Amino acid sequence: METTRHFVATVYVVSDGAVALHEHDKLDMWLPAGGHVDRDELPHEAALRETREELGFDVDLVAPEEDIESETVRSIPQPQHFLLEDINVHESGDVGHQHIDFIFYGAAPTRDIDPGPGEQPAEDWTWFTPEQLAARSDELPADVVEVGQRAIEAVSGR
C-alpha cells in the first residue's frame, strides 16, 4: 500500500504562560493551530497564515534563522521540531496518510481568539498552562503535551 504524505505547518501559540489548543472537529483530538502548506507557500508562511485564520491574530514566530545567503540561496525561519505523523492507520497496521509537520512556536499578542470565517469558533479553544497540560495527559496526545510544555518554556523565557 502506498502512503500519501502532505506537508503541514503547526504553531504552538503561547500567551502569558499558556498554549492555545482546540479539539479538532475532523480528527477528534486536541491540537494547536495548523494546516496544510499550500503549493506557493514556505512552511513558516503557512504557519503564520493558519494561525491568523484559526485564531484571528498574528504571532511572532520563535524560529531560528541562519545567515546563509548567496545569489541563489536564502535562509528561512526554522521549525522547532520536524515530525512525521500517522493520520490514517488501517486495521492491518498499514498507514494510508501521513503529515510531514513543521512545528513552530509563536508568541501571541493577546488571548482574545477571533477565528476567521469557516474556522472552529473561539469557544472551542482553551488556553493550557504546563500544569493543566500534565493534568490532562490522559486525554491529550503525548506529543501535544510535551511540545506544548516546551513551547511555553521557550516563549516565556525570551
Rank of each mutant, 00 (worst) to 15 (best):
V11F: 07
Y12A: 04
Y12D: 05
V14S: 01
S15A: 15
S15L: 05
D16P: 03
G17A: 01
G17K: 00
A18W: 01
A18R: 03
A18F: 01
V19M: 04
V19L: 05
A20I: 11
L21F: 02
L21Y: 01
H22G: 04
H22L: 06
H22C: 06
E23M: 13
E23W: 12
E23V: 11
D25Y: 14
D25H: 15
D25S: 15
L27C: 05
L27S: 09
W30Q: 02
W30A: 03
W30C: 03
L31E: 03
P32H: 04
P32T: 05
P32A: 02
A33E: 07
A33Q: 11
G34W: 10
G34H: 11
G34C: 07
G35R: 09
G35C: 07
H36R: 14
H36M: 12
H36G: 13
V37C: 13
V37A: 09
D38A: 14
R39H: 12
R39K: 13
D40R: 14
E41D: 13
L42R: 13
P43R: 06
H44V: 03
E45M: 10
A46H: 11
A47L: 10
L48N: 11
T51K: 08
R52L: 15
L55E: 08
G56E: 10
F57W: 12
F57C: 09
F57L: 09
V59D: 12
L61F: 11
V62Y: 12
V62I: 14
A63Y: 10
P64W: 10
E65K: 13
E65Y: 05
E66M: 09
I68S: 09
E69S: 15
S70V: 06
S70D: 15
E71H: 12
E71T: 10
T72P: 06
S75V: 02
S75H: 06
I76L: 02
I76E: 03
P77Q: 05
Q78C: 05
Q78P: 02
Q78W: 06
Q80W: 05
H81F: 09
L84N: 08
L84D: 09
L84M: 10
E85L: 04
D86I: 02
D86F: 03
D86C: 02
I87C: 04
I87G: 03
N88M: 06
N88R: 13
N88T: 09
V89R: 10
H90L: 07
H90A: 07
H90D: 07
H90W: 09
E91C: 01
E91H: 07
E91A: 10
G93C: 00
D94L: 07
V95K: 08
V95E: 06
H97W: 12
H97L: 15
H97F: 13
Q98G: 02
Q98E: 14
F102P: 05
Y105E: 02
Y105R: 04
G106I: 03
A107V: 06
A107Y: 06
A108Q: 04
P109Y: 03
T110S: 15
R111M: 00
D112V: 13
D114S: 14
D114R: 14
P115F: 03
P115E: 00
G116W: 05
P117D: 09
P117T: 05
G118M: 00
G118K: 00
